[in-house]
């Protein structure tokens, strides 16, 4: 009798399984068809806490080097030029190697002014890995560190600076 029960059970379970999979043919697929078949760019729909490419707002950077020290894999390279006579400091280099970055967010936690922060950008594919070094201070440029007692500059949209860097890179190609 067990024999015929086995046959009946296997037949019924196969039929039920087929019915389940067939019903999935009528359900909406979950796939997000990045990049072209979605109503708005994915960068805009990602949550604000998404840890994407890093961005540095050099206008509010205090050149405290906390992020450089916090980085466990030396992704961030900052050079500060200090004039020994006038005691004036200038940031002359602020590089973030996005190819090396592991998006741990330790630098963002250390930053006192939120100058370095994550964006929702993620698409930075390039034929040359050297392109992934994001240079927030162009060579030859000198930026004054931000003094916390000064009035903060007008806020700009998150991701705009990194996006501009990526765009300028694409223009060169």
């Amino acid at each position: 009798m067990q024999y015929f029960t086995n046959i009946k059970r296997s037949m019924m379970s196969v039929l039920e399984g087929m019915a389940v999979t067939f019903s999935w043919l009528f359900r909406r697929p979950y796939t997000v068809q990045w990049p072209d078949k979605i109503p708005e760019p994915l960068e805009k729909t990602l949550p604000a806490t998404y840890r994407g490419l890093l961005e540095v707002d050099t206008r509010i950077c205090t050149a405290c080097l906390a992020c450089e020290k916090a980085c466990p894999i030396e992704v961030i390279a900052i050079e500060v030029d200090r004039n020994s006579e006038t005691k004036e400091r200038h940031i002359v280099r602020f590089d973030v190697d996005a190819a090396k970055c592991m998006y741990c967010g330790l630098c963002v936690e250390q930053c006192p002014t939120d100058a370095i922060h994550h964006t929702t950008l993620f698409a930075a594919t390039t034929p040359d890995i050297g392109d992934l070094v994001l240079t927030f201070i162009k060579p030859g440029e000198r930026a004054l560190p931000f003094k916390p007692k000064d009035a903060p500059p007008a806020a700009i949209e998150r991701g705009a600076i990194t996006q501009a860097l990526l765009d300028s890179r694409r223009g060169v190609e």
């Binding site: 999935w24 043919l25 359900r27 697929p29 979950y30 796939t31 068809q33």
Partner: peptide
């Protein structure tokens, strides 16, 4: 297969 797995 894609549709059964909720893919495209």
């Amino acid at each position: 297969a894609g549709r059964i797995m909720s893919r495209v």
